[in-house]
Write a protein that binds this DNA or RNA. Structure first.
Length: 827
RNA sequence: GGGCGAGUGGCGGAAUUGGUAUACGCGACGGACUUAAAAUCCGUUGGCUGAAUAAGCCUUGAGGGUUCAAGUCCCUCCUCGCCCACCA
């Protein structure tokens, strides 16, 4: 008898599938299409890790499942090859990024093959291929031409280790999310993408796609739309007429406003420092203000956080008029006010805002209560009670007194607009996307700077702007890309006037290539367009997109923005790129901590496969671990369990093939098979991989019991095995293909059709009825499924086990749920 | 501080949406095979009382409530995870 040996069968079938081009999708086909997308990997030097395997295995299971349901499935894969880690890796190993990428991808490719994924490799590419980034550059130019890519001199987050600027999304807790280095602020001329123009579209679009709420909510929060009002305050003691505009979502509390605070970067603060404006009294505070601003701007975000919420600030010497109260409010400068949100100036309402309260306490400013909660005490101003968010009534607020806060908000907005005191305004937390990187290993930004014509796009026929081969690609401290040193590359003629001009030397972030890569799979070899229209029309939106939660506010948001823009340009047929999105959970190390190189607790999937368990067992164990979206620790022993399960199934098929067969009926076998088909089908539709596998295990255990009881006498064994192999095949493609052929089939199992089940065989001839007394389980009785209540109750009452509980007692009530339960209620 | 989610055996996790809590797997224990180990196979395995594979009681983070019946619904509280955060 053959033993189950994955090392023999897995490479054999992998080679055969590749030879047969089994998983290549057809452009245009009568079958309905299904695009299964998983995030393509960044080819690091570490190879595939378990997180990759989890994602790609789920994708493979879903793709195979759909294929067996008659879909023309596209399950593609490529490499997100540009980016800092490869460059750092190359520098460390003294090779070029190109060579590092080649080397890493060769390694990834080998690992991919060993897992038996049904991927269409004929459409694969790397974002660093000139044939690919030509179109990344071309798409960038469409943004530029539409005014959505622009340059600005701004303070950006600078990673001193990677020596590059970063987008807001790449900074986590004041550190670069890739290398964990503290970021600094630097003022540089940068390319930006106007993602803020699409803020509302990005919110709106979420209503028409199938994203779990934890993903949609995270994007909503990240965009952070706030409806409020910009209120203008006239400066009372300035010789020139000055106005400070503040943004607030709570104008209802404005009778409680007692001061105004400006961000250190605010234009009025700059004016004060330059003494362009001096109070009428002649007493300038410009020195105090300048000292404070200098000190606060030198602090990093992390330093500010470390100081906690202790408020600092300086009085500017100016006052603003609160027209509602007729009182003058001192204008302060403080770094708790962010230049990047709203107008960079806030009105202080210390009675109802914790930060304003702390500021007022620190500098002894008046505190007024204007809202009282349902059971609140308005007199106690020692408690930093927050604004009553949901309910509350106005007090001390003139014509708003007695109103509910929501009514008051609306009324004061109308009032302020009528009296020209302010204007309704929507503010967003979302910032424009900083798109410049001062690095070698990325797509050159295809712009030429001409003294005469400014930023000029590189003409289409000169694309791609090739990344030049270069000896020194190490980043510089100057904030200039290493490309700037290659003078014969930099110095070109202006495409408009032919006069000497210079190329843009910044490159794009690695999020550029991944913002549109799914579209390229539809037409990967196209040399004249990023993808042909008919193919874009055929494949349309990605039907299921699986990826990491960590990309929700990075890649996923960026790429939705790009796609929405392309849709507006009529370059793609669907308003959203991804019809459905799911995020898989993280696999932790067995000790519940994150896997990391420094801790040395990384599990290498190849070692598991090579140790003899094989890819099928690994795929099963990772899918069996937990629900797909749950973070969960890795269980090294789990693979032994799934390997054992596959061995048991293997052995049973061997015994069947070698032993005598019968021609009898077995209702038990029929029921078991129909049951497992139903179970696995339903679970797969709901992406409940772990319980589907549990069902398959249970079924195998049941087969063993049936075999022990009646041997292989039933004529249905062949069908039973074939059915279970089919529903196992998305999870464990190799063993199911092998046994399928051993059972005499000639064609591949992976193009066979998904088995159906027949409810009629699921009907049990006897069902267990639970008998309770006062809700406590006391007996089980076997009855016909369609038994009448009267008969069931009679049968239950006769049960000897019930006598101690029922004997002599009045039955007050009897609850009968057909097929499930009888409950007798006694005193 | 805000948003989202979760607390079930020694562990990962099931539970048809209110109807047998602990499926399936791991681990552990006992046994078979073996010179031995590994592998494999067969049992047992929530806790307490008990000689018991008799019987009973208890058990889904804590405490209340609704119900014939609650892991599931409602209220109060505690703990943990992820994301955001001096965002006005």
């Amino acid at each position: 008898m053959l033993r189950y040996n994955p090392k023999e069968i897995e490479p054999k079938w992998q080679a055969k599938w590749a030879e047969d081009h089994l998983y290549e999708a057809l452009d245009f086909d009568e079958r309905p299409k299904f695009v299964m997308l998983t995030e393509f990997p960044y080819p690091s030097g570490d190879g595939l890790h378990l997180g990759h395997i989890r994602e790609y295995t789920y994708g493979d299971i879903l793709a195979r499942h759909k294929r067996m349901h008659g879909y023309n499935v596209l399950y593609p894969m490529g490499y997100d090859a540009f980016g800092l880690p490869t460059e750092n890796y190359a520098i460390k190993n003294k090779i070029t990024p190109q060579a590092a990428t080649d080397q890493n991808i060769a390694n990834f490719q080998k690992q991919f093959e060993s897992l038996g994924y049904g991927i269409d490799w004929s459409r694969s590419f790397r974002t660093s291929d000139p044939e690919y980034y030509k179109w990344t550059q071309w798409l960038f130019l469409q943004f530029f031409k539409a005014g959505l890519a622009y340059q600005d001199e701004i303070a950006i987050n600078w990673c001193p280790f990677c020596k590059t600027g970063l987008s807001n999304e790449e900074v986590v807790n004041g550190r670069h999310e890739r290398c964990d280095t503290l970021v600094e602020k630097r003022v540089l001329n940068q390319w930006l993408m106007k993602i803020t123009d699409y803020a509302d579209r990005l919110l709106e679009g979420l209503k028409n796609v199938d994203y779990p709420s934890r993903i949609a909510d995270q994007q909503i929060n990240w965009i952070g739309r706030k409806d409020g009002i910009d209120i203008d305050y006239k400066v009372t003691n300035s010789p020139s007429s000055e106005v400070i505009t503040t943004f607030t979502t709570r104008p209802d509390t404005n009778f409680g406003a007692t001061f105004v605070v400006l961000a250190p970067e605010h234009p009025f603060v700059k004016k004060i420092m330059k003494r362009e404006v001096v109070p009428e009294s002649g007493h300038s505070h410009s020195e105090t203000v300048a000292n404070y601003v200098k000190k606060s701007l030198s602090k990093s975000d992390v330093e500010r956080q470390e100081e906690g919420r202790k408020k600092t600030g300086a009085f500017t010497g100016f006052y603003a008029m609160n027209e509602l109260t007729g009182k003058e409010m001192p204008i302060w400068v403080s770094d708790f006010v962010l230049a990047s949100f709203g107008t960079g100036a806030v009105v202080g309402v210390p009675g109802h805002d914790l930060r304003d309260f702390e500021f007022a306490k620190e500098f002894d400013l008046p505190i007024i209560r204007v809202v009282v909660g349902p059971d609140g005490d308005s007199s106690d101003i020692t408690r930093p009670e927050q604004v009553q968010e949901n309910q509350g009534k106005m007090i001390n607020s003139d014509f708003l007194d007695g109103l509910d806060i929501h009514e008051a908000t609306e009324k004061i907005m109308v009032y302020m607009e009528e009296h020209q005191m302010g204007k309704r305004k929507v503010s967003y937390r979302l910032r424009d996307w900083i798109f410049s990187r001062q690095h070698y290993w990325g797509e050159p930004i295809p712009i030429i700077h001409c003294p005469e014509h400014g930023a000029v796009p590189v003409p289409d026929d000169q694309l791609p702007v090739l990344l030049p081969d270069v000896k020194n690609y190490e980043p510089t401290d100057t904030g200039e890309s290493p490309l700037a040193q290659i003078s014969d590359w930099v110095n070109v003629k202006c495409p408009v006037c032919g006069e000497p001009a210079k190329r843009e030397t910044d490159t794009m972030p690695n999020w550029a290539g991944s913002s549109w890569y799914y579209l390229r799979y539809y037409d990967a070899k196209n040399n004249s367009e990023f993808a042909a229209k008919d193919k874009l029309d055929y494949w349309g939106a990605v039907d299921m997109y699986l990826g990491g939660m960590e990309h929700t506010t990075l890649h996923l948001l960026y790429s939705r923005f790009w796609h929405q823009f392309l849709y507006d340009q009529k370059l793609v047929p669907t308003p959203e790129p991804y019809q459905a999105r799911r995020g898989q959970g993280i696999i932790l190390a067995a000790d519940d901590t994150k896997m990391s190189k420094s801790k040395g607790n990384i599990v290498n999937p190849s070692e598991i496969i090579d140790s003899g368990y094989g890819a099928d067992a690994l795929r099963l164990s990772i899918s069996f671990l937990a629900p797909y979206d749950q973070t969960t620790p890795w269980s090294p022993e789990g693979v032994a369990g799934t390997h054992r399960f596959l061995s048991r199934l293997w052995t049973l098929v061997q015994e069947y093939s070698e032993g005598p067969k019968g021609n009898e009926e077995s209702s038990e076998l029929k029921r078991a098979v129909n049951k497992v088909i139903k179970k696995v089908s339903n679970d797969l539709d709901a992406m409940l991989f772990n319980t589907a596998i549990a069902g398959l295990m249970e079924f195998t255990n049941e087969l063993y019991k049936i075999k022990a009881k009646e041997g292989f006498v039933s004529k249905d064994w062949q069908w039973a095995f074939e059915s279970v192999l089919k529903i196992l095949s998305p999870f464990a493609p190799h063993i199911s293909e092998e046994l399928w052929h051993q059972l005499g089939n000639k064609d591949t199992i992976h193009l066979s059709s998904w088995p159906t089940y027949d409810e009629q065989y699921l009907i049990e001839d006897k069902v267990k009825l639970i008998v309770q007394v006062n809700g406590k389980l006391r007996a089980e009785i076997e009855v016909e499924p369609d038994i009448k209540e009267e008969a069931a109750v009679k049968l239950a009452k006769q049960n000897p086990r019930l006598q101690p509980y029922l004997g002599g007692q009045d039955i007050k009530r009897t609850v009968y749920v057909p097929g499930k339960i009888i409950n007798f209620v006694v005193s």
